[in-house]
């Protein structure tokens, strides 16, 4: 699939093919990875002994019998951090394309000022979370 693109004359299609060929390799590696690990799990399943007893199959709680249903309730704080992550990770990703075109001709002062305004908003977001004591771990 990757091979024939380079021998054809440079038409639009061969460029597109080459572009996707780079991604196709990643997809192929993904498939190979899944196959290797699934195969390893399967092989181990065929080779290993299997003698379960009720005691072996209990949940580990440092030697005593497990208490409760398993899933422990946890603090809401982790959920809030997930939201913060979504906001700031997306913001960080917006910076990447800006950083690549920043020095290109035609993107003068306006680009810089725009990004200052954008980063000021992000900074305000962090300050707001800080002020609301989301970042404080008691």
């Amino acid at each position: 699939m990757g091979g024939h693109g380079s021998r054809e004359p440079e038409t639009g299609w061969s460029t597109v093919n080459e572009y996707f060929a780079s991604y196709a390799v990643v997809a192929a590696l993904l498939a190979a990875g899944v196959a290797v690990f699934a195969g390893a799990l399967l092989a181990s399943r065929l080779l290993r002994p299997d003698r379960p007893t009720p005691e072996k199959l209990t949940t580990y709680e440092c030697g005593v019998d497990p208490v409760g249903e398993g899933w422990a309730q946890s603090q809401i704080r982790y959920y809030v951090y997930t939201y913060l992550y979504v906001v700031f990770a997306v913001d960080a990703v917006f910076l990447f394309p800006w950083a690549t075109v920043f020095a290109a001709p035609g993107f003068g002062m306006t680009t810089l000022v725009e990004m200052f305004v954008f980063l000021a908003f992000i900074g305000l977001g962090i300050l707001y979370a800080w002020r609301k004591r989301v970042l404080t771990w008691t």
């Binding site: 990643v26 699934a38 181990s44 290993r48 580990y60």
Partner: peptide, 29 residues
């Protein structure tokens, strides 16, 4: 690879087996 694998009684089987694959494959990618 060769020792007995204990699958605790209460675990969510599909998720439990899938999790190590989900963590290992992207690491290689």
């Amino acid at each position: 690879g060769l020792k007995e694998d204990i699958l605790p009684r209460v675990v969510d089987k599909v998720v439990y087996i899938l999790a190590p694959v989900i963590i290992a494959v992207p690491a290689f990618l």
